[in-house]
């Protein structure tokens, strides 16, 4: 398949992972079997990692405590940051982990059910890791946008029902 179409399949799924292979095929002028095969390949090769849903938990009435933690690290010989980063990232409380430029080295997102839980987790399982020289924790107060979606009410379609 040509690489532009492959990329477009990924872009469509990134926007809405529930778009069916049939619909994507319709959109791109391909056969559904071609699209299915391509998506299978993406999954097998780990290009598509998984299919998730963006949820407004606050609206759902579920309390979640989220924090961003900036971590400074002494890189280890040979493996650099990778070894420490993975050691940290494997914890289920850590929902995302990135190597970043600037004042800190790693930036992670952690999620828990209470402020105390999260604070303890950071103190005991992150700050205490060999090679970690400092942490700076920012608690999330409100979400405005996530995964390209604004967290506010959708504006209705105000267009005239018919126009020239």
């Amino acid at each position: 398949m040509d690489s532009l179409k492959s990329r477009e399949i990924l872009e469509i799924l990134e926007k809405d992972s529930r778009t069916t292979a049939e619909t994507i095929a319709g959109m791109l002028g391909l056969a559904p079997t071609q699209v299915k095969a391509e998506i299978d390949r993406f999954e097998q090769e780990g290009i598509i990692k998984h299919y998730a849903t963006t949820i407004d938990w606050e609206k759902a009435g579920v309390e979640k405590i989220i924090a961003f933690v900036d971590i400074t690290v002494v890189p280890a010989r040979d493996v650099g940051f990778d070894s420490i980063a993975l050691r940290i990232a494997r914890h289920p409380e850590v929902t995302s982990a990135w190597l970043v430029s600037g004042g800190s080295d790693l930036s992670i997102m952690v999620e828990g059910t209470s402020l105390k839980d999260l604070a303890n987790f950071v103190a005991e399982k992150i700050a205490a890791v060999d090679g970690v020289t400092g942490t700076n924790t920012h608690f999330l107060l409100r979400k405005y946008k996530e995964d390209n979606v604004l967290f506010h009410d959708i504006e209705p379609d105000n267009r005239l029902v018919m126009s020239p």
């Binding site: 267009r159 029902v161 018919m162």
Partner: peptide
């Protein structure tokens, strides 16, 4: 419950 394909402007 109308689905309009009669609109001459972007959505």
């Amino acid at each position: 419950n109308v689905i309009s394909l009669g609109v001459g402007e972007p959505d």
